[in-house]
Design a protein around this nucleic acid. Structure first.
Length: 872
RNA sequence: GGAGGUAUAGCUCAGUUGGUUAGAGCGUUUGCUUGACAUGCAAAAGGUCAUUGGUUCGAGCCCAACUAUCUCCACCA
């Protein structure tokens, strides 16, 4: 083995080997319990970022853990077509190549999309492999592949036939620059300083009385079909039901009473333009108002604007204001700051526009989806995210599922121009089933991306067919994803699963946070602060990246990425590497025995007991999805307990001439190391397998080894606690050396006055080795120690170290007094607790006992220290 | 406007049914080529756990209020 850990040497090689071995494949096995994870399909818009790396690492860790535990573990990978995002990317890419989307037919454009998908889909798969993802590649899915498309058709037609899908008019966001509808998520709001124009609309038949409306958009007045006032507003109550006259075009419109009008804002009167404002649209529906669209698709005014027809909306605004001023209708202009939506792509101000769209009725779907979480059929981890889910589900509106795009699942509805029929069927119809007409035209729109991703947990397993896989692997077990898509995706999977499968899609939803940059900012393209996981892997190795993304992270919390963290993890990998190197080197020519046949030293019993505790705690943590805690447990055990203590403790045996002792030591070392590697494998798969394969007592890959199980027979509680005393002595000797300025290289003599003579004698060699002593000798009276000794009191006895000239009575007194202060504090604290009647009466007995024992030890130590002080 | 998060060592963060002397990494100080590892070892400094109350025998943890900060949703005629 090389002296330093070099992941590049083995990561790719091991991954190929895993793939060839078929370990990733999940085949139904009725002897085993299934455990299923569906990978949230990354968009094929580009490449994976750090957020994906966290998501995939968590899933891989869980699936590897379950696989080792003997479950039939399926992790199903895939990618998402990401309708609008991809379409925009492809169009941009074509533009760079000098091709305009406008010059292409639908079919031609889709050809380019598939080209794009193949390229980036493959790139994503390669990145997933670099991370070590153990997913079943034979099942790799894509939201637009045949399987998923069939599921989409089925789901759509079923909902349609149930009357849960309908077509209706709605106000949508329209980008006059791109001349396309864009979704709410693609609108970016920015504050703009503008004006609030107060315009007087005269009462019909009056040239003095009227209502003053306040508006930020005077140019839309041609589309006004009412003026609204609050029905509770005493100022305007009397106007409700009367008509006012629109200036310029002199059109009478009614005054309606509607709660939308805020009495405290502006003048309290608001003009209602249902075709150009979402709120006004709602008001229009409530009062049966006409909608008048006054603009063309490109943002210029249309014929309803009369003489302004053809003028740009902003030029028109200015002109209208001027004219109103001239007419005497403009009462006031107030500066006003407000948010204006802009197209995320071309930054043009978005224009609300009425259009016909397809919707899913949400009422009947939402109810069971809410109950499923309420009834704990689905659990969010951490629990608080259930609130976010409820918050959205409780207020959910009908879901607009049509998009004016080309890339996506085309809506399976055909229109017959001959008889006017609307046909929704699973298979493309050749003729109109109503009239036999042959001129059927399919709806031009495609479905919202989330419509297909909502079916992901079952479309990938064969739905709508009744497959054996679907029966075995569905419902899936845990869904791992970021909190940012709880409502976009998680919620939709839940109601879709319940609707189409009659079963929840997963039992647990494990939510993680965002990865931010070192300054805590969101990683984004525009800031250019994104970190490419591949570059990190190249520099530090996949295991280091994986460990750094899991360690020290609480579920659901955001985390910051920093090179320093990955570097620290790389150092940990190096530690594992070198500890293993040490163990393997020492195995040479030794007889390896099962630990049950080894005569165990107290150090052996201590480390084996610690190992059992770690096995128990790591397994518990993993079952609760507390990956960060599990990592910390393993980190501390491996570095501190195993490397810093146990390996050092074995050195005196390994450097001795006693072959039997050496065999024993190596056997225990190997046992602990091998278990540790198996514990670590789900987190850091590469390094653990690489080492595992070179251990003398293993064969095959660690991937398919059993996950360690807690064994109470190997938990030597008493001995492990007693061994703590040995460690305390070692630390005490080291402290004395530092405190007295004794050269670390000087081998001191140590005399122990203690009741635990057997323990100390048995470990005298180890203590000497680790503390840098010549020897450790037990004595029965302090007089047996040499004069001019420094004394140190521990909970297992007093130790004396003769240091001759280095002993400075003054310094010694100070040191002992400091020590005494500390002990006195402890005594006061424990005393206070034990004198508290409430504590004695109500605290658990064990705790009270422990406190008593502690107090006794401290009191003993105090006596000894005071005696030392007297002797000085 | 609505919902939610966070506040613990100089920095980044753990701390999950409330119970040892509140931990880790990085950084800092001191000393070490200690036959696996300087990507290392040893020793140490550094915290009134944002603030104020409350519940409890006992609070970093539970409750209330307050301050700061971040995020999401809705949206401002």
């Amino acid at each position: 083995m090389e002296k330093t850990y070099n992941p590049k040497e083995f990561e790719d090689r091991l991954y190929k080997d895993w793939e060839q071995s078929g370990y990733f494949k999940a085949v139904r096995d009725d002897e085993k319990v299934p455990f299923t994870v569906m990978m949230p399909p990354p968009n094929v818009t580009g490449q994976l970022h750090m957020g994906h790396a966290v998501d995939e690492t968590m899933q891989d860790t869980i699936i590897r853990f379950k696989r080792m535990q003997g479950y039939c573990a399926l992790w199903l990978p895939g990618t998402d077509h990401a309708a609008i995002a991809t379409e925009v990317k492809v169009a941009q890419d074509l533009e760079k190549r000098g091709i305009s989307k406008d010059d292409l037919s639908r079919g031609e454009f889709l050809g380019y999309c598939w080209e794009w998908k193949n390229k980036y889909g493959e790139r994503i798969v390669n990145q997933l492999k670099k991370l070590g993802s153990s997913c079943d590649w034979s099942r790799l899915a894509f939201t637009m592949d045949e399987k998923c498309s069939k599921a989409v058709r089925e789901a759509f037609v079923n909902l349609y036939n149930k009357g849960l899908i309908y077509r209706g008019s709605r106000l949508i966001n329209w980008c006059p620059g791109c001349r396309t509808a864009i979704s709410d998520a693609e609108v970016e709001y920015a504050e703009e300083s503008s004006y609030l124009w107060h315009i007087k609309y005269f009462l019909e038949g009056s040239d003095s009385e009227g209502l003053v409306v306040a508006t930020t958009r005077p140019e839309t007045m041609f589309g006004d079909t009412a003026v609204a006032v609050n029905p509770a507003d005493p100022r305007y109550k009397k106007f409700i039901g009367k008509n006012v006259v629109l200036p310029i075009i002199n059109k009478p419109i009614p005054v309606v009473g509607d709660k939308h009008a805020d009495m405290t804002f502006g003048t309290g009167c608001v003009k209602i333009t249902p075709a150009h404002d979402p709120n006004d649209f709602e008001v229009g529906l409530r009062h049966n108002l006409e909608s008048v669209t006054v603009m063309n698709e490109d943002g210029t005014m249309n014929a309803f604007a009369g003489k302004y027809e053809g003028m740009d909306r902003y030029a028109c605004r200015k002109a209208v204001v001027d004219e109103l001023k001239a007419l005497g209708n403009l009462m006031e202009i107030k500066p006003h700051a407000h948010n204006v939506g802009h197209c995320y792509r071309c930054n043009t101000a978005v224009e609300p526009r009425i259009s016909k769209q397809w919707f899913v009725k949400m009422d009947s779907l939402a109810k069971p989806a809410i109950s499923a979480v309420n009834d704990k059929k689905i659990t969010f981890v951490p629990e608080r995210f259930a609130k976010i889910y409820y918050n959205w589900m409780d207020n959910v509106k009908d879901w607009c599922i049509s998009r004016q795009l080309w890339w996506g699942h085309r809506i399976p509805v055909w229109y017959c121009p001959d008889c006017g029929a609307e046909i929704c069927v699973k298979d493309d119809p050749a003729v109109c089933p109503e009239c036999g007409g042959k001129h059927l035209k399919q709806d031009e729109d495609v479905l919202d991306t989330w419509f297909s991703s909502a079916l992901w947990p079952f479309s990938t397993l064969g739905y709508p067919d009744d497959t054996s896989d679907l029966e075995y692997f569905y419902p899936t077990d845990v869904l791992v994803t970021g909190y940012d898509i709880i409502f976009f995706w998680v919620a939709r999977m839940i109601f879709s699963g319940l609707e189409h499968m009659r079963k929840v899609p997963f039992r647990d939803v494990l939510i993680h946070g965002l990865v931010r940059d070192e300054q805590g900012r969101k990683m984004s393209k525009s800031l250019g602060n994104g970190v490419d996981p591949l570059e990190v892997i190249e520099k530090y190795g996949a295991d280091s990246l994986r460990f750094s993304l899991l360690q020290g992270v609480a579920p659901g919390n955001d985390m910051r990425y920093s090179d320093a963290k990955v570097e620290a993890c790389r150092n940990f990998m190096n530690k594992i590497w070198n500890a293993s190197r040490y163990v393997i080197m020492n195995c040479e020519g030794r007889k390896i025995k099962p630990v049950t046949e080894v005569k165990l030293t107290s150090a052996d019993k201590w480390i084996i007991s610690r190992l059992q505790a770690v096995i128990r705690d790591v397994t518990l943590s993993l079952n609760k999805f507390e990956l960060g805690i599990a990592c910390q447990l393993l980190y501390d055990f491996t570095w501190s307990d195993f490397c810093d203590w146990y390996i050092e403790l074995t050195k005196s045996a390994l450097h001795s001439d006693d072959a039997d002792k050496k065999d024993n030591a190596v056997s225990v070392l190997l046992f602990v190391l091998e278990n540790t590697l198996r514990l670590l494998h789900p987190f850091v798969p590469f390094i653990t397998d690489e080492i595992y394969r070179s251990l003398p007592n293993t064969k095959g890959s660690i991937m398919v080894a059993d996950y360690p199980r807690y064994n109470s027979k190997l938990a030597y509680r008493k001995e492990a606690v007693a061994f703590g005393g040995v460690m305390e002595i070692i630390k005490a000797i080291r402290e004395v050396k530092v405190e007295t300025g004794c050269a670390p290289s000087k081998k001191v003599s140590v005399y122990m006055l203690s009741d635990a003579k057997r323990l100390i004698s048995a470990n005298a060699d180890c203590i000497a080795k680790l503390a840098g002593a010549a020897y450790v000798k037990c004595i029965s009276a302090k007089e047996e120690a040499e004069e001019k000794s420094v004394a140190k009191v521990t909970s297992v006895g007093t130790l004396y170290i003769p240091l001759g000239e280095l002993v400075d009575a003054e310094k010694e007194r100070e040191r002992l007094n400091n020590e005494l202060d500390r002990i006195m504090n402890e005594i006061r604290r424990a005393d206070g607790k034990l004198n508290n009647q409430g504590f004695i009466a109500k605290a658990p007995k064990q705790l009270v006992e422990a406190e008593r024992a502690k107090l006794n030890t401290f009191v003993e130590m105090r006596e000894k220290i005071m005696e030392q002080l007297k002797n000085l």
